[in-house]
C-alpha cells in the first residue's frame, strides 16, 4: 500500500477530487452573480413579485454580513469559500431564520436511506441476473427476454417508471396512500413503519429503473470473461460448472462491475431525486423541488454543493480502494 506507484496514484486522485470540489464551489459562487444585480436582491425581487416576503430587510442585512456583499469580488469569494468550508451553507430565505444546513439535515437521512438501499438491492439483483444471463445466455430463451426487458428499463427515464408505479399503486390499486412530502424521523415504531411505507414505492421505482443497467453491464462483462483462456483451463481441470461460473467467471467480471458503480452514481442520484419528487418523498429531491418553487436560492445552492461533495467523495473513496482489491494492480 505504501508503494510509490500507489502513493502517486492516490495523490493524483486526491488532487482531482479537491479540484472538482473547488470548481463546484466557484461555480456556485459565480452563477448567482451573473444575474444583474447582487444575488440576494435578485432573489428578493423575484420573491416580491410572487408576493411572498417576510423580514426582507433582516435577510438582506444578514447576508450582507455573512458574505460580505458590500466588499469587492475577491473578498466575497474568499469569505464565501471560508464559510462553506466551515460548514455554513447560509440561511434559508423562505424559512428564515433557519439555516440551510438544518433544513437539509432533516431531509438528508431520508434520501440516504432510500438511495443506499435501492442502489444496493438493484446492483445485487442486476449483477446476479446479468451474470447468469451472460454465462448461460446463449442456450436459454428466457434470458433473451430478460435482456430485452433490461434494455427497456435502461432506456426509459427514472421519472417515467416512477409515474407509472405511482399511477399503478396509488391511484389504480390503492395499496399505498398519497404522500404529502412531510415526514420526520424519530425512534418510535410508528415513525419507523411510516418511513418504511413511504420509502417502499420510491425504492421499488429506483430499483426497477437502475437494475437494467447493472444487468446489461454484468452480462457483457461475463460474456467477455467467458472467452478467456483460464476458463478453458478451468474446464480442463475437471472443475464443476458452478465452480467455473462463480470462481473463475463471476469473480473476474466483478471488479469492473464494481468500478461501474462510481460512473453510475451521479446518474442514479439524479434519478433518485426526480423519483422523490414524483412520490412526494420527504428527501433532498423533494426539498430541491420546493426550494425551486419558493425561490429559496440558498437552499438550492446548499443542495448542489452537498450532493456534488458527496458524489465526489464517494468516487474518490472507491477510486482509492479499488486497487487494493484487484491483485493485478496491487504492486
Amino acid at each position: 500500500m505504501s508503494s510509490p506507484f500507489f502513493i502517486k496514484y492516490f495523490l493524483s486522485r486526491l488532487g482531482f477530487y479537491i479540484l472538482t470540489i473547488w470548481i463546484t464551489l466557484t461555480l456556485t459562487f459565480i452563477i448567482p452573480r451573473l444575474v444583474p444585480g447582487d444575488p440576494i436582491t435578485a432573489a428578493l425581487s423575484m420573491l416580491s413579485e410572487a408576493g411572498a416576503l417576510r423580514g426582507s430587510q433582516e435577510i438582506v442585512d444578514e447576508y450582507k454580513k455573512l458574505f460580505g456583499l458590500d466588499k469587492d469580488m475577491m473578498t466575497q469569494y474568499l469569505s464565501y469559500l471560508g464559510q462553506i468550508l466551515r460548514g455554513n451553507l447560509g440561511i434559508s430565505i423562505t424559512n428564515f431564520p433557519s439555516s440551510v444546513s438544518t433544513i437539509i439535515a432533516t431531509a438528508l437521512p431520508w434520501t440516504i436511506i432510500l438511495l443506499s438501499t435501492s442502489t444496493i438491492i438493484s446492483w445485487i439483483l442486476g449483477t446476479f441476473l446479468g451474470a447468469l444471463a451472460g454465462w448461460r445466455g446463449i442456450e436459454k430463451k428466457r434470458f433473451e427476454l430478460l435482456s430485452v426487458a433490461a434494455l427497456l428499463l435502461y432506456i426509459i427515464p427514472y421519472y417515467i417508471v416512477a409515474i407509472l408505479i405511482l399511477w399503478l399503486f396509488i391511484y389504480t390499486i390503492p395499496i399505498f396512500p398519497r404522500e404529502t412530502g412531510y415526514g420526520s424521523i424519530n425512534l418510535t415504531l410508528e415513525s419507523i413503519l411510516d418511513a418504511l411505507r413511504k420509502s417502499s414505492l420510491p425504492a421499488l421505482s429506483i430499483v426497477i429503473s437502475s437494475m437494467g443497467w447493472w444487468f446489461l453491464s454484468m452480462r457483457s462483462l461475463i460474456a467477455t470473461v467467458k472467452r478467456e483462456d483460464f476458463i478453458l483451463m478451468a474446464e480442463a481441470k475437471g472443475l464443476k460448472s458452478s465452480t467455473i461460473m462463480w470462481k473463475y467467471g463471476f469473480r473476474n467480471a466483478l471488479l469492473p462491475q464494481i468500478t461501474g458503480l462510481t460512473l453510475a452514481l451521479g446518474h442514479i442520484t439524479a434519478g433518485a431525486l426526480v423519483t422523490e419528487i414524483i412520490f412526494a418523498y420527504p428527501g433532498i429531491g423533494w426539498l430541491l423541488y420546493q426550494s425551486i418553487l419558493q425561490l429559496d436560492y440558498p437552499v438550492i445552492q446548499g443542495i448542489v454543493i452537498l450532493i456534488t461533495f458527496t458524489v465526489a467523495t464517494a468516487n474518490f473513496i472507491v477510486d482509492t480502494i479499488y486497487p487494493l482489491f484487484d491483485p493485478r494492480i496491487r504492486r
Binding site: L19, I23, V35, G266, I303, V304
Partner: peptide, 23 residues
C-alpha cells in the same frame, strides 16, 4: 484533458439546476 475530466466529474444535472434556477 483536465477540462474534460472535470466536466465529466461534475454532476451535470445539479449544475444545470443551479443555472436554470437563476436564469
Amino acid at each position: 484533458r483536465l477540462f474534460i475530466d472535470v466536466n465529466l466529474a461534475l454532476p451535470s444535472m445539479l449544475v444545470l439546476v443551479l443555472i436554470a434556477s437563476y436564469f
